[in-house]
Amino acid sequence: MRVVVWITETGWEACVETAAALAPAGAEVTLLAVPSGELEEVAAGGRAGLLGRRPPPPRGPSWDEVADDAARALLADARDRLAREAATEVRHGRVEREVVAACVGADLLVLARDGDDARLGPKSLGRHARFVVDHAPCRVLLVWPGEPPAAKLPPPPHEHGEHPPPPPPHERGEHPPPPPAPHERP
């Protein structure tokens, strides 16, 4: 069994703990990190906005090197926490697409919610996790970065009786429903 664990700054502990607890003993675990190029583009855009200026490149390691070093350090810590044999991989490019590409041939992906994790609901998935959950070519295990929020479910409207669901249109005297199309007939 091949398990990919997507390691991010905000959810890596939960993902590693889940993989440690649930991945079978013989599973081949890969810890994956994909540094985003988004902030580098924001910074490059800022420099492009300085019309006419040609500032020398800043000293010290490049933006990519900083992002890469941070990703590798995070993966090393994740492997220590996992406390078992695991491969590490750093990929570059569009984050969500690289994660999906890394899952080709895998049996399971473990990832953390990357949206608003203070409330239950669709917004607990951010842009990247949403794409990955929808497109990963394997089983997906989605974990909360911390404790799941103790929010109650919203009450189902019809049990409270105040706002029953609207009757179907034909009971409201509107247009009758169209007959089923021929190819839908049993």
Partner: peptide, 26 residues
């Protein structure tokens, strides 16, 4: 100019070193 060219990369590196998401800071 100093903030765009000189400070922003330092802020990114600082956030990366502290392992906190760099987006708000950049």
């Amino acid at each position: 100019d100093a903030t765009v060219v000189l400070l922003t990369p330092v802020v990114f590196a600082t956030a990366a070193r502290l392992r906190v998401p760099a987006r708000p800071h950049v």
